[in-house]
Nucleic acid binder design. Sequence first.
RNA 1: GGCCCUGUAGUUCAAUGGAUAGAACGGAAGUUUCCUAAACUUUAAAUAUAGGUUCGAUUCCUAUCGGGGCUACCA
Length: 594
Amino acid sequence: MTIQELLAGRAAEAFNQLFGTVLSPSDFTIQRTVINFREQGDFSLVVFPLLKLSKKSPEETARLMGNKLQEITDEIESFSVIKGFLNLRIKQQFWVDFITKKYTNTSFGLKKPEGGKPVVVEFSSPNTNKPLHLGHIRNNLLGFSVSKILEANGQSVKRVNLVNDRGIHICKSMLAWKLFGNNVSPESSGKKGDKLVGDFYVLFDKKFKEECGSLVAKGLSEEEAGNRSNLMSEARNMLRKWEQQDPETRALWSMMNQWVYKGFEETYRQLGIVFDKTYYESETYLLGKKLVDEGLKKGVLFRKDDNSIWIDLTSEGLDEKLLLRADGTSVYMTQDLGTAQLRYDEFNPSEMIYVVGNEQNYHFDVLKLVLKKLDKEWADHIFHLSYGMVELPEGKMKSREGTVVDADDLIEEMKVTARQMTEELGKIDDFDSEEAVRLYDTVGLGALKYFILKVDPKKNMVFNPSESIDFNGNTGPFIQYTYARIKSVLRKAEGQDFTMQGSVTLYPKEISLSILNYMFPQVINDAATEYSPSVIANYLFELAKEYNQFYHEHPILKEENTNSKDYRLALSVLTASVLKNGMKLLGIEVPERM
RNA sequence: GGCCCUGUAGUUCAAUGGAUAGAACGGAAGUUUCCUAAACUUUAAAUAUAGGUUCGAUUCCUAUCGGGGCUACCA
């Protein structure tokens, strides 16, 4: 239980005794006293919402509550009333006891998964025709971090990936390889598999444009040129062959996809991401037709004259939506319906989270509505974790202009920057080379991950590589650095066998640092309900900053009073533990020294 | 056109309907060398506009104006 929950419970009790009305603790807003009134108290109860029931003025209500609380509890030192705010000062002994109890617990704030119904988190979902880029990085980091946060709340989680490995776009790169590839492979070219395939996709586009250009020069319109293009019709032909299970086409498809997977695997490894299960659209794209039949029988769907099947969502403010083409083949929506059902049957989840970019908001609105109309009660437990685009300081990434930032290149660049900065300062001259490389990885990736995760997912954001790796400011390296520094302090204090003593006189600063005691579990909780790692990221920064201030005012190793030194060391242990656990929830490592 | 998201210091980000809108980077001034990439203190600087609901609005509602996205028998 957090201190806030405890106080809310006490407040409910006090209110009941005073006014004879039974309210639940959640009816009481207990907040951290705002900084300017910290002299008045540690926590504040907002009494405005209670006035209708108390039938007294704000001041009077607050005063009565304050008296009653002090009477019936033993946590409160004193209180003051300012307008409708009842400021409560918590007894110092309470803090000390609280910290004493917690500081040896290194998994502070985290729970073990309890089993029960899992939450399925789908993320990443790449196409096999091009390598991962900066946008995918945001997706992967969000999905992975959200899954970690849910686990820290005791939730069991299934991480799933749905690979888009079929379709006309895949055929384009296959065709380009067949026509212009000269049997090149990742081994023979030394290129990463996903890059190689991506290059052929680009090559197809280039050749296709050339062909169209020459057709237009002969007097065709652009649309006609597109339709008359040999390349495009060959690609379509290839897709048909693929669907007819043509062995040669399938073999080529399979070979090139394997190249890509090997490349993806490497990128995932770099990012520290793993999945419990990977689905392939080639295996799931025919699903969903059963659901369409079901819908037809129920009269939820209708058939047009050309035999295509639709759902009418105009009464919900959306459009009519196609679910099956006239020739009976399915579309994206159809297979997503099927995949959702498959996943539901397979995991019996309490919730299904889809980490997908916000350009698909409409798609997911429709998906949920259709499922609801099919009487799938679990449609309400589908959550689209929608996130915004990542832009660069120079502007938007555009594949046409070649400004797409490749994931691997970016990761490499971050590591190189970390190395350069470290070498310039000569901070780790005593590290062996293996240790040093590990540090560069940790810092480079930490910078990247933190910078992306600290932003509210639904907002578009600007990623600035050089700013992200700054060792000052709201950055990953700053937090890593703070952690390493605490560890260094603790190493030097080792052998002194410190313990917490109740007699310590606390300084206001130290009390404010100790907010971590009630806030960390709360923060994880909030982050889980909002599916937002940014909550945790920003909290960790606040904590690290506060520790630095604290350290500046109370240089621990120079402290001569044993009691207060012990207290501060214990606080350092606790802070380090929260920083480490918190960063873990973001998928970020912290170095023991740097 | 319709639908969805979004608009906060110069910039990048915060703020369950609560007190005087917080930080960081950058700018200006100063203190210090404490363990580690310096730190600390002070300072200037923002809620797009107009209404509404409320004891109280950055937050909720309406309109207007900006930015982004969706509006495929592509996935």
